[in-house]
């Protein structure tokens, strides 16, 4: 199974890198960019085929290491 994990900054947490990217996009002439938020994307290949067990494991991985839940949210997609 392949898991795709997106980690994003929580609402209200300042993202200076996102702001710098938005500025660079405007320097390139792209118009209409209202806000950019930068995050992380992690792929994990998992053994086994039980999606429920996999999901519980991935949730624990995110909470314990992959995301810092003080500042970040995470979402998990799982391809069986």
């Amino acid at each position: 199974m392949k898991a795709r994990i997106h980690i994003t900054l929580k609402k209200g947490v300042l993202d200076p890198q996102g702001k710098a990217i938005a500025k660079a996009l405007s320097h390139l002439g792209f118009v209409g960019v209202e806000e950019v938020r930068q995050g992380k994307y992690i792929e994990i290949d998992l053994a086994g085929s039980d999606t429920q067990t996999a999901r519980a494991g991935l949730d624990a991985m995110c909470a314990q290491l992959l995301a810092n839940t003080v500042i970040e949210n995470y979402s998990i997609e799982l391809d069986a």
Binding site: V13, L14, P16, Q17, A20, N68, V70, I71
Partner: peptide, 17 residues
Amino acid sequence: LTEAGLLPGALMRNAGL
């Protein structure tokens, strides 16, 4: 210490990058 949960909060990228 913050990552280990011994102190609250987090240290993020410097505002000026």
